[in-house]
Amino acid sequence: MKIFERKNIIVQQPEIFEGEYVLDVEDLKIRYETDDAVVYAVNGIDLKLKRKQTLGLVGETGAGKTSTVLALLKLIPTPPGVVEAKKILVNGKDVMTLSDKELQHIRGNEIAMVFQDPMTSLDPVYTVGEQIAESYMIHDKLSKKEALEEAKKMLEIVGIPAERSTDFPYQFSGGMKQRVVIAIALACRPNILIADEPTTALDVTIQSQVLDLMKKLNEQYQTSTIMITHDLGIVAETCDEVAVMYAGQIVEKGTLEDVFENTKHPYTEGLFNSLPNMNDRNSKLNPIKGLIPDPTIVFAGCPFAERCRYAKEKCFKQKPTVKHLSESHQVKCLRYDEVDFKIERALK
């Protein structure tokens, strides 16, 4: 009978934070100082995330998406990284001021991360069960045996038979590995889950399975999620809010409808226009001209001005400010000072 009792250990739900925003970041700046140059990865970002909401962070490679979320966990390597912010509140606690011990308590317990490539984010020398068990041993202080039991339950939850918990990562396929990674991240029921391009390394069918799974688990555990991706389709499918990043800044932010149906920023427009047209398969792709700017350059004006077809002289000289178009929708573009300015997004 004793054995049965042990099996039914309920993992403690970390105390649910009562404030409105589980995540509240103000004026986050990250730069990497190397011997040759200073790389400005993130230049003043505000982020707010409500409970149970999913925020999509969209942007090109090098826009500063990953740096932003790593800063939330205070995992930016310093040096060379330098992180500055007015505040980074995770569940009301400012990670900038926490000690290493407190940070280790928060990581995995209150805020967890799913990494991009499931092939490399599992340790090859441990069984998957042991790797899931690790977070129970760290945070819930379970014994190894209890932790392994919990790990098996977690594997079942992500749709992998419990008896495979004694297998090593190389015995799993890519999609299953990503399920394991998700199981590890959700093991201690974090309030915030960060998914850094969780499906980039997977093929489309597995991709939708993994996304469905994440969505289901988020509802079940009431987790708030930050979803990093460059796939606008994934955003449309999974996110409540969207933030579009360009050159270390959030250029447009709003609810899914705001950004997708009522696009305001020329860069977001460019992203949508560059999608392949499903109705006319012979049509040419319509990419944004030019490349993402060199992150070592500090711009006097708008960093997108060079590639922007609406850019005027003032765009090169004057820093754009945030315009609130509605309660939820904001855009960072100078042209909206003009009352009658409109972009001409081609709706397909």
């Binding site: 966990l73 995992l75 280790q104 967890a112 990494f115 490399t120 984010s121 760290i138 590890i184």
Partner: peptide, 11 residues
């Protein structure tokens, strides 16, 4: 990445 991942886990 698995080193980074276990750091993100709070190890």
């Amino acid at each position: 990445e698995y080193i980074e991942a276990s750091r993100a886990l709070g190890a």
